[in-house]
Design a protein around this nucleic acid. Structure first.
Lengths: 162, 162
DNA sequence: TATTGTTATACTCTATAACTATA
DNA sequence: TATAGTTATAGAGTATAACAATA
């Protein structure tokens, strides 16, 4: 490896960032027009919908979606005010807040999901073969796991002492 | 193709979005701490640095980076106030504004770039083989071109008549 | 002493609509 | 009539620091 990115690496980096930027912009609009939510809010609900007992602690919920604690508190406040989640203190750890998705929250996800799936299929998967798909999934899973393993990544990371 | 996403497609979509989200967050911080710019501002400068004559019209500059005209005007205003670009009316088309990167702008890009490259290499490319890289580049280039070809994508797109 | 979560606050980004000017 | 760009403004997201409560 040299000290700079090969042209091939640079092209790959740019293609990746621009593709996902375009995809992000498109799904953001779909989620908002179909369900009146931001993509982040949709991701939080979708994560809760898939969780055991349909609930998670704030910290677990934030992981990978939101990068600051106050950001999550803000989003949770909005979702709670909209009746899509509830918050209650955990019995196991009195410090923790358990977030549970409501029936309305599940309905909202169900409303958004069909159009979301069509959009992602048309935009992301349409130009790919089955083999491309499997390879991309394998590659990005490896990348994600690698990034997750890097030192500072979670909301749980607090200030280092100066 | 069925009417829903295969589980494999869903996993791939999630892995892709989360990887890029983590990468985006990391590069955003690098660009800000190394050069005091947002990632968007860095992308705009980098695009200008690579353009013929180091200048572009506002519309050409926005393409793929910013999704509203006013957003670009805002960013250009910030970059101009920081002395990193200049704006001047085009002689060819009196409606157009030509944006040119200044010497300071080029220096700023040069200041940010080395650390940026190291970060992208460590975060994105470290877990990939040469073959993975080429395949990913090919795949995402195809995806990007496909998305770019979709109807509503550019800042140039104005309101449809109702 | 470290962790969970909230609050307050300030800053940035984004988007719409109204507007000017040129093609 | 359509396009390039700016302005004003309002809304949404984000982050830091200070804080309370629990482990």
């Amino acid at each position: 490896m040299a000290e700079s990115l090969e042209p091939e690496q640079l092209d790959t980096y740019f293609a990746l960032m621009e593709s996902v930027s375009l995809l992000h912009h498109a799904v953001e609009q779909q989620v908002r027009s179909a369900g009146g939510l931001s993509y982040i809010q949709f991701q939080l609900l979708a994560r809760l919908a898939g969780a055991p007992d349909r609930r998670l602690t704030m910290t677990a919920l934030a992981d990978g979606v939101v990068y600051s604690r106050s950001g999550l508190t803000h989003q949770a406040g909005l979702l709670e005010k909209a009746g899509l989640i509830t918050r209650a203190p955990s019995t196991e750890d009195q410090r923790a807040t358990l977030v549970t998705i409501t029936r309305d929250g599940l309905d909202r996800v169900a409303t958004i999901l069909p159009g979301h799936i069509v959009l992602v299929r048309d935009l992301l998967f349409a130009p790919l073969s089955g083999k491309d798909l499997r390879t991309l999934g394998d590659t990005m899973t490896r990348v994600r796991d690698h990034m997750r393993a890097q030192p500072p990544r979670s909301v749980a990371t607090r200030k280092r002492q100066t």
